Amino acid sequence: MFTTAWTASPQLPSEGFTPNRSREGFWRQSLRQVVRLTAGGGRVRVRLSNAYGTSPVRIAGATVGRTATGAAVAAGSLTPLTFGGERGAELPARGDLVSDPAALAVAAGDPVTVTLFFDAATGPATFHAQAFTTAYRGAGDLLADEHGTGFVETTESWYFLTAVETDAGRTDGIALFGDSLTDGFGSTPNAGRRWSDALADRTGRPVLNAGIGGNLLLHDSAWYGEKALHRLHRDVLAHPGVDTLAVLIGVNDIGFGETDEQPTYKPAPVVEADELIAGHQGLIRQAGERGLRVIGATLVPFGGSDHWGEHAAKVSHEVNEWIRTAGAYDAVVDFARLLADPADTDRLRPAYDFGDHLHPNDAGYAVMAEAVAAVL
């Protein structure tokens, strides 16, 4: 039985908010991507997505191996991936592709490296914009490049790769669902310091990160993904081995309308608390129908950020009070109180503030993970 050990939620190709190669795509190039697993096993398989592609993508070959340093792979660990017994495969337009299981011994916490070779132009690439992890690109077929010397370009996005699964046989996975605070904005790049990483380390359970920076609960965005209400099934419920969902979403619905300085925030409809509450109820209903236990998290303090204003304050307080008291969630973690500055509870405690008064730093994410672990 396979268990999802790592995920990244797919997004529409876009370049307006973070440098990446999603619109450019790949041609006669190899792409090497590093991910950190949260479940071990003796076999692995990878899941690729062309969810936003209008044409098939030719995968000329793929490998997986244990990560060494940078683009290098641990000696002797490079393992070919096959698809239906073949080295090459077609990733269908608007579709997914899952590799055959490959023999590779891995442990929870291990980084693994997935390499894809594209011998034909991919066109715009379905991707995950903010990986906070370095990926590598090089010319030609570098599938067997153990030392990684041919990978001369870097990026901090993931492309086509949306999941790695292992034969751990675990059914106690935890999915974290939300926006940039779940995606890990403000954590140290390449260090595994998101709260999903900290939660996996603390609990020993598989943890799936289904955050998308800038994501909205109620509305689609050209830059920040499909609305959470639509993507929950694809990004969480369709993955094997998950029994718990933790929800942290809504700050962008509230805050995007508070500034005119960021064009990627537009359009930004002004929303009220009852609309967001209905959205949360929709998530709870979808997860409940699949038998998941659902944990609700209050929105973190964000006073002083570009998301803050009089209306944002009113709505965030109302939504947080509903999360705390309505009894709609199976359990609640009160990030608003845990991360608040005692001198001004609408603001992040300075020791937990990444610096933009919206996103926690590594220490703040560790506190969030500890709070969720306490209610599991």
Rank of each mutant, 00 (worst) to 15 (best):
L338R: 15
N20E: 07
R231T: 15
G192D: 02
P111C: 14
V236C: 11
A121T: 04
M368Y: 10
T298I: 06
A369K: 03
P206W: 07
Q29D: 13
A278M: 10
M368C: 12
G296P: 01
D243K: 08
I254R: 07
V46P: 01
A238T: 15
R293C: 03
R47S: 11
A297M: 15
T188G: 00
L299R: 09
T126N: 00
A62E: 05
G214Y: 01
A371Q: 14
R234Q: 13
A74P: 01
A131I: 05
R23Y: 00
G225F: 05
H307N: 00
L161D: 05
S30C: 08
L229G: 09
L31W: 03
V319W: 14
A175F: 07
L31E: 09
A60E: 12
A102W: 02
V46T: 10
A340H: 12
V242Y: 06
S49L: 10
H147D: 15
R349M: 13
L283G: 10
V73K: 01
E15Q: 14
R202N: 00
T18L: 15
R21H: 03
S180Q: 02
I254P: 04
T82R: 11
L216H: 09
A374E: 08
A273D: 07
E272F: 12
T4I: 11
A51S: 15
G148L: 08
D96I: 02
W27V: 10
P56Y: 02
A89Y: 09
L208D: 00
T166Y: 04
A144R: 14
G211Y: 00
L217W: 09
A72K: 05
E86L: 11
G42D: 15
G53M: 11
A102F: 04
P342L: 13
T3N: 08
G184H: 07
R137S: 10
G123S: 09
H359F: 07
I249G: 01
A340L: 11
M1S: 15
A135K: 02
P360M: 10
A336Q: 14
S55F: 13
R36F: 08
P124D: 10
T115K: 06
R202Y: 01
L143S: 03
F26G: 07
V300P: 06
V44C: 12
G41V: 09
D201E: 10
H317P: 00
Y159N: 05
A336L: 08
M1K: 12
